[in-house]
Design a protein around this nucleic acid. Sequence first.
DNA 1: CCAGGGATGGACT
DNA 2: GTCCATCCCTGGT
Length: 199
Amino acid sequence: MSNKLSHSFYKSNNILQSAKNLLGKVLCTKINNQFTSGKIIEVEAYLGSNDRASHSYNNKKTQRTAPMFASGGISYVYLCYGIHHLFNVVVGEKNNPCAILIRGLEPVDGVNIMLKRRNLNNLKNELTNGPGKLTQALGITTQINKKSLLGNKIWIEDYNLHVIKKDILSSSRIGVDYAGDDAKLPYRFYINNNKWVSK
DNA sequence: CCAGGGATGGACT
DNA sequence: GTCCATCCCTGGT
């Protein structure tokens, strides 16, 4: 049986709800035949054309942002600071360019593979407690940009891990000072008291 | 073609 | 906790 999140999950236009729903789900990759996964602990929602913090603000469609304009259910991976690959889940209907950035993961499968990719010797929070760290750990690069999340390279599973509603906290998003008033919006969601939340 | 930017990380105290 | 190097790629020309 498969617990893979299906098409319908990604088509919703209620992006904030979708972002919260991703908490507790398990992000999986199979890169170079190596399976790794982690439970989603922290996310940020980017609400598209009206959100100044979003790459797709003002319907700015370029080669880079094109994946956001596609129908939900694909990856949006881009390079940040020339070094870090950041992974987003594209959600919403076609031409509603929204995405959810994954910022923190609790390692589940393939910890040894992740440690190796991160050049670490033992399990500690810096393995996956940041958007650039977790992509490195899961082997996510722009090579898997614009890929279906229903395929066999990258996907998300629902293991029915219960996240208590009151344990979901929100805050403003990180590193979006350029967004004016929109920088203050409480579109970052994370699980309370969890060591895998970014610093 | 190239100037400028960027949803950060890690080294250090 | 604080500070700052990062460097590839994008997009406008």
